[in-house]
Design a binder for these strands. Structure first.
Lengths: 140, 140
DNA sequence: ATGCCTGCAAAAGCTTTGCATCCGC
DNA sequence: GCGGATGCAAAGCTTTTGCAGGCAT
């Protein structure tokens, strides 16, 4: 039995065609951050006849099941990525739109410290750096 | 000449009734984070006949002028707050919806360090902690 | 067979825009 | 008076939902 089937069974979701295809898309090499629309277009490209509404429903279920993580970056559209277990934050190159992942134990620690100082525990957090390539040395 | 008029002149915006009233709402005591809808409702409460579209247009102009800052927290609606000059991040109590502001020079420093390590400079950033009140001692 | 899933279309929620009118300077 | 600003309504976008039929178990 393949990996995707096992994954769906594991989280208690019925193994249906749309769910399999969508999960496979996220398992593809190099795929990282996709919007619902991105997923939908990829499905169309693979000659799949799956409705956009289903894509949204499945992504929501996957998120609830902990298979994927949803991010609300700027720009209106939510982006989803496979939850590979290790938490990380994001840096977005505002010129190219490229997304870079990073982790900082130090920042994580400080966040908890700050929350605790205010009498809270962190439930979740979102850290996004909007960046621009550092100016290269002039090439003239 | 009052403070709001000066502020509008300073950023080069014509001093109109809607812009004055909206700016005054943000200048009110205790006001911190408002959605466009919040601002609109407050205007209605003050017997003002200003359209929601105008509220959006004015908020957008204020943001471009640096008078207010726009945040895209979770939940679809953008929230705006007066830009009082000193940058800060946010902590949101997911139970009450309360927003707490905080600053951490340490985290700011680490962010720049991380961006630099990847060859970038930070253009902007967003850090939001979704928190819950720390569990009181069990009472059973 | 049963109950969850899906596709389609419609609706919903937030924000933007077209247009005729109005107002600040 | 002129050009930008506003109100209203309509449109735009992303996401959600109702419903009838379909499919996994």
């Amino acid at each position: 039995m393949d990996q995707e089937t096992k994954e769906l069974r594991r989280v208690g979701l019925k193994v249906t065609h749309p769910r399999m295809r969508i999960l496979q898309i996220f398992d593809e090499e190099g795929v990282q951050h996709l919007t619902a629309e991105d997923v939908y277009k990829k499905l169309l490209g693979h000659q799949e006849d799956i409705g956009l509404a289903t894509v949204y429903r499945v992504l929501t279920q996957f998120e609830a099941a902990g298979i994927i993580v949803k991010h609300n970056f700027e720009g209106g559209q939510a982006v989803y990525e496979l939850d590979r277990g290790k938490h990380h934050d994001h840096m977005i190159d505002v010129d190219s739109g490229k997304v870079i992942e990073f982790v900082s134990e130090e920042i994580e620690r400080l966040q908890h410290e700050i929350a605790a100082r205010h009498g809270y525990v962190i439930e979740d957090h979102s850290l996004v750096l909007y960046v621009r390539p550092r100016q290269r040395v002039r090439k003239d």
